[in-house]
Design a protein around this nucleic acid. Structure first.
Length: 210
DNA sequence: GAAACGATTATCT
DNA sequence: GATAATCGTTTCA
């Protein structure tokens, strides 16, 4: 069985990017969340290579965003300290005591903004992903599934610089605005009116509608 | 201290 | 559509 080509299924509608899509991560979180669509994420955790392309993200602002783990009422805590570090770091947290969720820290240092990675299309290592999911389909649609697909099974990479292995953001494809859709964020009870979720319309890897 | 609650998902009816 | 799993963080007394 040949390995799946390392291109997204929608590659005929986009062009390759020369750098991490959307440029530097040290920018306003909404721009970073939009820009990360089409960016690749490569994991070599556990000595096995898995490559995905991001198709769904959510922006979380700083103290002014009531949905953020760094909302003003929370302040700086042991859990959210990675968000106060430099852009491009990994903020990891556990959801429902069950799933790990990946975030890319954005914005100026000291401004606790982050982008939740909610969904991706698996480009290579589908066999690895299927095994990690107990033989189920090799999906990375949904924040918990994405972390599992990439082999993130504990908090060991908390604060990791995503410019470096074993979990690395690399150049992907430029995505035209016409393919990008927006919605309210999923699963939040506060700040739900902010339409800060970005996803690629009709792309595999977007999390299922609840 | 104690209780409630998740930036979710798989499975069952 | 409903619910269990599962545990650290938050919230309240």
């Amino acid at each position: 069985m040949p390995e799946t080509p390392a291109c997204p299924s929608w590659r005929d509608q986009v062009s390759p990017a020369s750098s991490v899509s959307g440029g530097p991560l040290r920018r306003p979180v909404l721009e970073v969340a939009r820009g990360l669509l089409g960016t690749r994420l490569v994991s070599t955790l556990g000595g096995e290579r898995v490559e995905v392309v991001l198709v769904e993200t959510e922006a979380y602002g700083g103290p002014d965003d009531p949905a953020s783990h760094a909302a003003v009422r929370a302040g700086r805590t042991d859990r959210n300290r990675a968000m106060f570090g430099g852009a491009g770091r990994l903020y990891l947290y556990r959801s429902y005591g069950v799933h790990w969720c990946l975030n890319v820290v954005a914005g100026e240092e000291g401004a606790p903004q982050a982008v939740l990675l909610r969904g991706a299309e698996v480009l290579s290592g589908r066999d690895v992903v299927a095994r990690r999911r107990g033989g189920r389909a090799p999906l990375a649609a949904g924040p918990g599934r994405l972390a599992q697909a990439l082999g993130v099974v504990d908090g060991g990479l908390y604060g990791h610089n995503l410019a470096d292995p074993p979990l690395q953001l690399v150049a992907g494809w430029e995505v035209p605005d016409a393919r990008v859709a927006r919605s309210g964020r999923i699963g939040v009870s506060r700040g739900a009116q902010r339409r800060w979720r970005f996803y690629l319309r009709d792309a595999p890897g977007v999390s299922p509608v609840r």
